[in-house]
Design a protein around this nucleic acid. Structure first.
Lengths: 176, 176
DNA sequence: AAATATTGCAACAGTGGTGATGCAGTTATC
DNA sequence: GATAACTGCATCACCACTGTTGCAATATTT
């Protein structure tokens, strides 16, 4: 059950169009068995997406987004998410069914993130004029980009520093 | 010929797994005709990717990346690319064959971009400590993100300002 | 050990896409 | 206007994937 989802993660990460056969093979199970657990390919994908996004939400929660000081939370959450995504990230981009559990949780995560950004803005960590929706999307993009080339080797904390620094100060010259 | 590629762009943008049939239909042509022009599905995709990335390179060149002042070039190129990508951007993410014409041109574009960033750094527009490879990827990501929600309506110049500003200064408080 | 559930295997029908071909009608070229 | 090129259409063989089922073998429970 869980092992099938794990195998699916691995296989689909390499080839999003992989067949049920390949997934079954990767989890050392007959294709029929997969079909017995998951009525359809879509059902499997939904289950995978839901399970993964659920754990992502947990990793974020561990950073205490609405109680820790914004900067601290930002760092901790970034590091947690990096670590999680580098191992399980693929399934988060999976095309889950409209209105599925995965989608709902994703939205919940976005709300959590916005809440954190609002607190950061209130405390002057983010410019008061900033478009927080844009900031959030940039934040997401930076995380994705950081993983794009430093998959295994890099220390999540180091990467997190880089991301938060870029998010807040950009690439322009430092005036201090 | 060209009209088929244009239709393919439109159709594949909505559904990357679209069939030759759907592409043919969208270009008001019989499926056989498509097959007569493009030996295989992959050949069509390669041609589409090559043609598109070629025009992107032109749009970048129009911004004079290695003669105009870095900030000016950055703005102009960003606006040009935004405009181009909002209309034709999808095909740029297409899985072209290894070592195809499209891939080569992509690399050429990346080199052009790096050259511009180096000049920007030399002139103090970008921090002398900055990791230019990272900056370039962040730049790409910002462009992608900007298009993600403002597809048609927005003025490319306004978006370009937002992107360059974020790239150089981030979301932190303004000290001026 | 007996009963139950789970699995692998083989086989099947169904679907949908790919790529090719022959032919007849249409369009462009000279 | 004749010729050559192109197109649509119908059809074909072929393949890969999905989803189902029956059955025998294997694990699990009790």
């Amino acid at each position: 059950m869980r092992s099938i989802l794990e195998a699916a993660e691995r296989v689909l990460a390499e080839n999003p169009a992989a067949s049920m056969e390949q997934i079954a093979e990767a989890s050392n199970v007959a294709r029929t068995t997969v079909h017995r657990r998951f009525a359809s390919r879509q059902a499997l994908i939904d289950a995978l997406a839901a399970s993964t996004v659920e754990r992502l939400a947990q990793a974020i929660e561990d950073g205490r987004p609405d109680t820790a000081p914004p900067l601290v939370a930002l760092h901790r959450i970034t590091a947690n998410v990096l670590q999680f995504k580098s191992a399980w990230g693929f399934a988060l981009g999976l095309p889950a069914t409209e209105g599925s559990e995965a989608t709902t949780t994703q939205e919940e995560i976005a709300r959590r993130c916005m809440g954190l950004l609002v607190r950061a803005q209130d405390q002057g960590v983010i410019d008061s004029q900033a478009d927080l929706d844009w900031v959030r999307r940039v934040y997401y993009a930076l995380i994705g980009e950081a993983l794009h080339d430093s998959p295994e080797d890099a220390d999540p904390d180091v990467l997190a520093i880089k991301i938060v620094d870029t998010l807040l100060h950009g690439a322009g010259p430092r005036t201090r």
